[in-house]
Design a protein around this nucleic acid. Structure first.
Length: 253
DNA sequence: CCCGTGACACTCC
DNA sequence: TGGAGTGCCACGG
């Protein structure tokens, strides 16, 4: 018996089919345009569950369904309407983000994704930052493992998590895509790279005494003459700077 | 349960 | 300055 017939049969058990039944048995899917090109998106009534570029799956919906089923053990059914908020965020436009359905993930995974989701557009944070913000400061490698399997890229902006040494790091769809996404949202990667070549990874503003990650919106407003680069937050605090309350570059000891 | 595996990150020269 | 070595933690087989 096909799943479609099963649902139909279950529906006849009541005078009117319960509206939530489909939703409990199926996950909807559709394709949508995004900054990664066309993507497959799977979603339940709780929120978006899985996003993958069609290019990475040879544009084959069956491959998407299989990948989905491997992880979530549920069948997919074509949907005709996108969840609220999905399309603007996929396209890099402003707007309230869609709800996410992260059931089935471990607490650690959800913590990592939640911390990652707070990174503003055009800014980056190192893996160690996500580990700390997520509540597991030494789980740096584990953070990387979680992001490598991010079920909802773009919606959880894992492309904004970069290496502490100034490198952009790897990405689910390739390093080039990661860099292109960051440049597309005007992250100042060239500044980061120039500083890293000198062994510097933080910027202090003399006027305010605040030290930031170089991509922080505050760091980018520091007048060149007022900028001081630091290799570590410890070095910056030793020089009298305090960590930026917005980008939170390290423990406030 | 032990062991291998990583989108990482320090520490040394 | 950068490459190798070592430490790390969560997960899966």
């Amino acid at each position: 018996m096909t799943v479609d017939r099963l649902v139909a049969a279950l529906g006849t058990l009541r005078h009117t089919a319960p509206p939530a039944l489909d939703d409990e048995l199926f996950t909807g899917w559709l394709t949508a345009p995004s900054r990664l090109g066309e993507v497959f998106v799977a979603f339940t009534s709780n929120g978006v569950q899985f996003v993958r570029s069609t290019a990475s799956l040879d544009g084959d919906p069956a491959a998407f369904a299989q990948a989905y089923r491997m992880r979530f053990a549920r069948p997919l059914r074509a949907a005709d309407r996108a969840p609220a908020g999905l399309l603007p965020v996929l396209g890099g436009r402003p707007g309230a983000p869609p709800a996410l359905d992260l059931r089935g993930l471990s607490e650690f995974e959800r913590d990592v994704l939640a911390a990652t989701r707070t990174i503003p557009v055009g800014e980056t944070r190192p893996y160690g930052w996500v580990a700390r913000e997520g509540g597991s400061p030494r789980a740096v490698r584990a953070v990387a493992s979680v992001l490598a399997r991010n079920p909802v890229p773009l919606l959880v902006p894992c492309h904004r998590v970069v290496r502490a040494d100034g490198g952009v790091g790897r990405y689910l769809f390739g390093t080039e895509r990661k860099e292109a996404l960051l440049r597309g949202e005007h992250a100042n990667l060239d500044d980061v790279e120039a500083l890293a070549r000198r062994g510097l990874h933080y910027l202090g503003a003399g006027a305010t005494g605040v030290v930031c990650f170089p991509t922080c919106h505050r760091a980018r407003r520091i007048a060149p003459a007022d900028r001081t680069g630091f290799a570590t937050v410890v070095a910056a605090t030793a020089a009298g700077y305090r960590p930026c309350p917005d980008c939170r570059p390290g423990v406030v000891a």
